[in-house]
Design a protein around this nucleic acid. Structure first.
Lengths: 160, 160
DNA sequence: TCAAATTGCGTAACCACTTACGTAATTGTT
DNA sequence: AACAATTACGTAAGTGGTTACGCAATTTGA
């Protein structure tokens, strides 16, 4: 018996959090399996830089939808590992731009192979679902984006 | 554009985490709306005690699938608010049993009303989904429970 | 044109968990 | 009965995010 799952919509947040942790750890296990020194939590930033080339702290913060201190902290870790480098922007002295280092670029092909394999497995899992999780998440995100939850709550229960 | 969502299965963990935070905050807004001094994160423990009556730290830890220090910490907060009380077990001096206090029981009807309203709104959202999120989560949990991700990964890619 | 508002970044403190480790009580084995 | 193994709980430190706040650089607008 899983009381959190049984509670359905009420413990929705707690349930998502728990699944998020399991999901992140699972991917971490794959990096370990291949002996690659890379952390799951760094994936969004590292991947974005691999695609975009170069980006400022705030741009990354907005694209990844995390706060800018989170970006700074993640970047600090990746800089310490030598996977990314940063330099002040020439156009705007307030900005600091991040990009992959040589070492980061060298690691990229190995990571991309792993990412492809993970994607293949996940897709095979998701494709067999009666209720596709990615579709389901997208639908919920759209609902939340259209109107805040609390607004919707007030309307639904005729409050205010 | 939402790069995390676009990445689909690769940023699955990050995405769940973000949604979990939004979901928890949304429910918190409802408590605030009703002027009730209750925190979303305390819901699973408080709810379980309201159903079970009395339970030890480890029992709660197992049922809610969080570590025992997490239970202790959450319980500490609820005790400080006077919503739960605890006493050493008579049968086993190692155990400490938690249960709702008078104040906690008094608050319960108000909370139950709120929970019912949240449930009603959420169900109305979920029922309109083409891909039901609760069903989708359940399917994924079952897949993960059947075999660890890394085992499945090795088999899928014929490794080891 | 120059003062006010805004923007970008950095740091500090906090939050809700986790892992690691220690101690006391109970249980199992012989 | 005694002692080794296990179990329940507590605390400390770590993690990966957050909010709050401050400062310097840029942009706005009277």
């Amino acid at each position: 018996m899983d009381i959190i799952a049984d509670l359905g919509s009420l413990a929705f947040g707690s349930r998502l959090k728990r699944m998020s942790e399991i999901g992140m750890q699972s991917v971490q296990d794959v990096y370990v399996l291949y002996g690659v020194d890379f952390e799951t939590k760094d994936f969004p930033l590292f991947y974005y830089l691999s695609q975009k080339g170069e980006a400022s702290i705030m741009e990354i913060s907005e694209v990844l939808k995390v706060t800018h201190p989170a970006v700074i902290q993640t970047a600090k870790g990746l800089e310490k590992k030598g996977l990314i480098i940063s330099k002040k922007s020439a156009e705007d002295a307030r900005k600091r731009n991040l990009k992959l280092s040589k070492k980061g670029k060298n690691l990229l092909p190995k990571l991309e192979k792993i990412w492809t394999e993970i994607k293949a497995l996940n897709n095979s899992i998701f494709e067999n679902q009666k209720h596709n999780i990615l579709e389901a998440l997208k639908e919920i995100e759209d609902v939340w984006a259209e109107k805040t939850y609390i607004e919707r709550f007030k309307e639904f229960h005729r409050i205010g």
